[in-house]
Amino acid sequence: MKRIIPYIASDFRKDKIWLRRTKPARREYQVMVAVDNSKSMAQSTQAVELAYETLALVTTALNQLEVGQLAVVSFGADVSLLHPFDCPFDSEAGARVLSRFTFVDDKTDVVQLMDASLQLFDAAAVTASTTAEDLWRLQLVISDGVCQDHARLLRQVRAAMEQRIMTVFIVLDRSAIAAAADDVDPEKDSIMNTQHVSFVTGPDGKMEMKVERYLDTFPFKYYVVLRDIHGLPTVLAETLRQYFSLVGSE
């Protein structure tokens, strides 16, 4: 406000207020949105629709920054690249992407997703117009959060961070999806109440079963559990705001 008043008083001649907005940004962003294409996502049409909204929101954010590329993948039993980094994401591209989601896969292979996304980011780095130091990459994963092989996923997440790829997992809690589908017991399948079972070597050298709270072993450092699916756009907007603020302070 202190900068706006002198600008107006000067008959709009002192335009220093806008210099930071018109100065070319050194940083470039590559954002990948990975959406779960399994059957569990289709239990609620609202969950599916809100997943679609994320694409529009991320696109808007990148367009405002004028320095970004967007890729979209679907994952379930397999990983499919629906939109590559090096193509503009316009309304026609958005329609093509949305038409390719089926939500019929019987499983969700997050390990395969991480392997594929790392390869896609590596390939996309070649097309970036800036240096590696000014290239910032973000992966947004939208799923119900149920994944196997936490130890391997943890290694993959660390490998991504070493390549300056931040992965944020937005968990559409099954209780929220069940509630939207009018399930009689929405808490039954909540990830908050899920346990993780593993087998470890005990003091006597024998294998023992270890039961832990599922989220205590969740391999993704940055995640948010969304228990109200209507809050997805708000959570995503705040995630992007915090990410760009973090990058801006570097």
Rank of each mutant, 00 (worst) to 15 (best):
S80C: 03
I177F: 03
E133Y: 10
Q112V: 03
V235L: 10
G202D: 08
W18P: 09
T108P: 04
A237R: 01
D122W: 00
R155P: 04
Q163Y: 07
A56G: 10
A151H: 14
F12L: 12
A61W: 03
R96M: 00
L135F: 09
Y222Q: 14
V200R: 07
R26N: 10
T60E: 08
M207N: 12
D183C: 12
G202V: 01
Q148A: 05
G202Y: 00
D228K: 03
A77G: 13
L62A: 06
R21D: 05
D11K: 05
V79R: 07
T45A: 10
F75K: 11
Y29P: 05
L120F: 10
Q30G: 13
A42M: 14
K221G: 11
I5G: 08
P186D: 11
F12T: 06
L81S: 04
S249Y: 08
S38H: 06
L62I: 15
A9R: 08
R27K: 06
Q119L: 02
V48I: 08
D144V: 15
Q46I: 04
G202F: 02
D109L: 09
V72Y: 01
E250D: 13
R27N: 11
D86V: 09
G248Y: 09
I177H: 04
Y222M: 07
V168Y: 00
D204C: 00
G248Q: 09
Q43V: 04
I142F: 08
D105A: 09
K23Q: 10
M209V: 10
A123T: 12
L215C: 05
L120Q: 12
D90K: 05
Q69W: 10
Q112Y: 05
A180D: 13
V200C: 09
A93H: 10
P233R: 01
Q43F: 13
L19N: 05
R152W: 11
D78M: 15
A77W: 07
M192Q: 14
V104N: 01
K210I: 00
T45S: 08
Q119P: 01
D228L: 04
P6R: 04
V146K: 10
E133K: 13
Q46N: 08
G76T: 07
L240I: 06
A34C: 10
D182E: 09
F244G: 12
S143F: 00
F199G: 00
Y223N: 04
D86Q: 12
M166W: 03
L153N: 03
T131F: 07
A237I: 08
K221I: 15
T59V: 01
G76K: 14
Q119Y: 00
D106H: 12
C147E: 14
V97T: 01
